[in-house]
Computed example of a mutant assay.
Amino acid sequence: MDKSKVGFVVAGGIMTILFLLVVNLLTSTLFIWFIYPAFGILLLIMNIVFINNRQYKLQAVLASAFLIGFLVTVNMVHSPSYPWFIYAVFPIIWWPISAFIGRKAGTVTFALVASTSIVLYYVILNNVMGHSYPWAIYPAFAILWWPLTLYYVRKKEYFRFSVVAATFVILFFTTVNVVSTPHTIWAVYPMFAVLWWPLSMYYFYVKKHDRTPVEE
């Protein structure tokens, strides 16, 4: 993208923010809502400018800092009694870390270290913030797909991946069932659906590769 197009994007973004500000002040001064679309527009402009100049590390640092600052501001303005922004800060920090690490950020080792640290972070928050319900299992389930998928895709072991992943999903639903509604056994229903994944992979992938010509 040339400088003229970047300048057009910047000018258009600033004009849009000013328009939203005027509309906000004319319609309602009790709730300043224009800051939300303004944040998205400014973040978009920032990313376009830095990417156009190929300043990826600077983009990651400033954009993540801007995002964290926005979350902290919204937190302090609307709900200062509860610091909910801390739930999002640590994963965002891994953006500039990944940018500075470079190609190594695409390795299984990096994915394992990053995902493990994020899981531990949420487990600690779960306990420090005084929650009796182990909600950390949900972000842990989501983030652990990163190293799991990367490992088996790199090795091209798709059938083993389906078996391990299906087992992982079954363990997750079983855990949620036990900690949420131990008196109602509902986890068997998603288990049945998940088992079709490795079964179908076995039939269409493994059997296909193991098939030998029939001797006449």
Results as ranks from 00 to 15, higher is better:
residue 121 Y to S: 06
residue 192 F to D: 01
residue 18 L to N: 07
residue 146 W to M: 14
residue 156 K to Y: 08
residue 201 M to H: 09
residue 162 S to W: 03
residue 103 R to V: 06
residue 47 N to M: 07
residue 167 T to L: 15
residue 33 W to F: 09
residue 152 Y to M: 02
residue 90 F to L: 06
residue 10 V to N: 01
residue 20 L to C: 13
residue 126 N to I: 04
residue 75 N to Y: 03
residue 206 V to Q: 07
residue 38 A to P: 03
residue 160 R to H: 12
residue 57 K to W: 01
residue 13 G to Y: 11
residue 214 V to F: 04
residue 157 E to Y: 12
residue 106 G to P: 07
residue 182 P to L: 10
residue 144 L to Q: 09
residue 26 L to G: 10
residue 104 K to Q: 11
residue 126 N to S: 14
residue 107 T to F: 14
residue 106 G to D: 12
residue 121 Y to A: 03
residue 89 V to K: 01
residue 29 T to V: 09
residue 70 F to T: 01
residue 135 W to L: 12
residue 208 K to R: 10
residue 58 L to E: 14
residue 32 I to Y: 04
residue 98 S to E: 14
residue 46 M to K: 01
residue 164 V to F: 13
residue 107 T to S: 15
residue 162 S to A: 12
residue 14 I to M: 12
residue 75 N to R: 01
residue 117 S to P: 09
residue 79 S to E: 13
residue 78 H to I: 09
residue 58 L to N: 11
residue 100 F to P: 05
residue 151 Y to T: 12
residue 152 Y to W: 13
residue 83 P to C: 01
residue 156 K to E: 15
residue 4 S to K: 13
residue 51 I to W: 08
residue 60 A to D: 05
residue 48 I to T: 04
residue 204 F to R: 04
residue 44 L to W: 15
residue 136 A to F: 15
residue 73 T to C: 12
residue 29 T to E: 09
residue 205 Y to H: 11
residue 34 F to C: 03
residue 42 L to I: 10
residue 177 N to H: 10
residue 165 A to G: 12
residue 130 G to K: 03
residue 18 L to P: 06
residue 187 A to F: 13
residue 92 I to N: 05
residue 136 A to K: 10
residue 197 W to Q: 01
residue 49 V to E: 07
residue 172 F to S: 03
residue 90 F to R: 00
residue 76 M to Q: 14
residue 213 P to A: 11
residue 168 F to A: 08
residue 125 L to Q: 10
residue 88 A to C: 10
residue 144 L to T: 07
residue 168 F to S: 06
residue 25 L to I: 04
residue 21 L to M: 11
residue 196 W to Y: 07
residue 66 F to G: 10
residue 151 Y to M: 11
residue 127 N to G: 05
residue 19 F to P: 04
residue 163 V to Y: 09
residue 212 T to V: 13
